[in-house]
């Protein structure tokens, strides 16, 4: 009886204390031979991600090259879709995934509260990650940073005619020329929609909704739509896919509006019931390594918070861009409103 009472008391206390109940971050861990051996025994790691599938598979391939015998299974969908999947799975007691990584930082607040994560701090994160880019209790850290930008085809739109600011997009001459991704699918766009609705008001989106935008889902898609030539201008979309396509020779250019550019921190974490705990730890540590972060930058066009990652010279340095930071907990509070308003103005 008393045991039960104690347990119930502890449970209530945990509920009451909420986040304060965390014991602080665990000791940083190194990649030891034992960890590699145990991970190799598990033979695979399941990686739920919202990073563009070709970039994510590259990361997986780099890991496999380092640790032969461990397969990386990449499961890519939009941030909000990954959130839906992991939510459905964990609510139903299914534990498929080892690593989760989305570009909507507010998700990680929920994951942490639901006790869905395992605290783990790779050595590199402890040494090099700024405080603001990692969880104080060691549950997650920023794997990447993504900007949501305007972009246009330089061969189809003259530089003088290209939009310079967000409100430029409301000009009637752009009617029927814009493509835009969906906040109900993409974490970047969810964050950007929050930032812009704070900055410019919902009025901006109401007017944008009348511009005949082509509505796609993922924020990785608008740059691809530009490359196909389906639309010449993206009203919002990933910066990194613009870079990837630039590297492939597509005439496409990102615009950093004077009002500011929304930045979303894509956190990564190890799940609480990871079926391959050791492989998960190994992969998680690899994700923050210089090699992986540099690969993200070189091949994937992603921004890194790791100080020793060298950015390509043809890209505007992060320090020269006016950034709009969004507090994840504010984004979380606004999600329902954003979805509802968005459907009102854009139809879906």
């Amino acid at each position: 009886m008393s045991n039960k009472k104690v347990a119930a008391g502890a449970f209530l206390a945990a509920l009451a204390w909420g986040q304060l109940a965390w014991a602080g971050p665990p000791e940083p861990y190194k990649v030891t031979d034992d960890l590699v051996a145990a991970a190799t025994k598990e033979a695979s790691v399941v990686y739920y991600t919202s990073t563009d599938v070709q970039v994510a598979e590259k990361l997986g391939a780099a890991f496999e090259a380092h640790y032969p015998g461990i397969k990386v299974q990449v499961e890519r969908a939009g941030s909000e879709r990954v959130f839906q999947r992991i939510g459905q799975e964990y609510s139903s007691g299914i534990h498929n995934a080892d690593i989760i990584e989305t570009s909507d930082a507010s998700h990680f607040l929920t994951f942490k509260e639901q006790n869905w994560l395992t605290p783990a701090v790779p050595e590199d994160v402890a040494k090099m990650w700024p405080e603001k880019d990692r969880d104080p209790d060691g549950f997650y850290a920023a794997f990447r940073a993504t900007l949501t930008v305007i972009a246009y085809r330089t061969d189809l739109v003259k530089e003088g005619d290209a939009p310079k600011t967000w409100t430029d997009l409301l000009d009637p001459k752009y009617k029927g020329k814009l493509v835009k991704s969906h906040p109900g699918y993409s974490g970047n766009v969810m964050t950007a929609t929050y930032a812009l609705s704070q900055l410019l008001g919902w009025d901006y989106f109401e007017k944008l909704g009348k511009q005949g935008v082509m509505q796609v889902q993922s924020s990785t898609e608008p740059p691809k739509v530009l490359a196909q030539g389906e639309r010449p201008i993206q009203a919002d979309g990933n910066e990194y896919n613009v870079f990837i396509l630039q590297d492939k020779g597509v005439p496409i250019k990102a615009v950093y509006p004077a009002e500011g550019t929304s930045i979303a921190y894509g956190n990564a974490a190890i799940l609480a019931y990871a079926p391959h705990p050791n492989a998960a730890k190994l992969f998680y540590s690899f994700m923050f390594s210089q090699e992986a972060q540099q690969l993200n930058d070189d091949f994937g066009g992603l921004r890194s918070v790791r100080p020793d990652v060298k950015e390509k010279s043809n890209r505007t340095p992060l320090s020269q861009i006016k950034l709009l930071d969004s507090d994840p907990s504010n984004v979380r509070d606004a999600v329902e409103e954003i979805k509802q308003k968005y459907e009102e103005y854009f139809g879906t």
Binding site: Q88, M214, Q215, V216, Q217, T348
Partner: peptide, 18 residues
Amino acid sequence: LPAGFHVLTTKIWSFFQF
């Protein structure tokens, strides 16, 4: 969805967002 409208089945699917 790219054209900016829902049908009933896609609307039901959207209710499954977390």
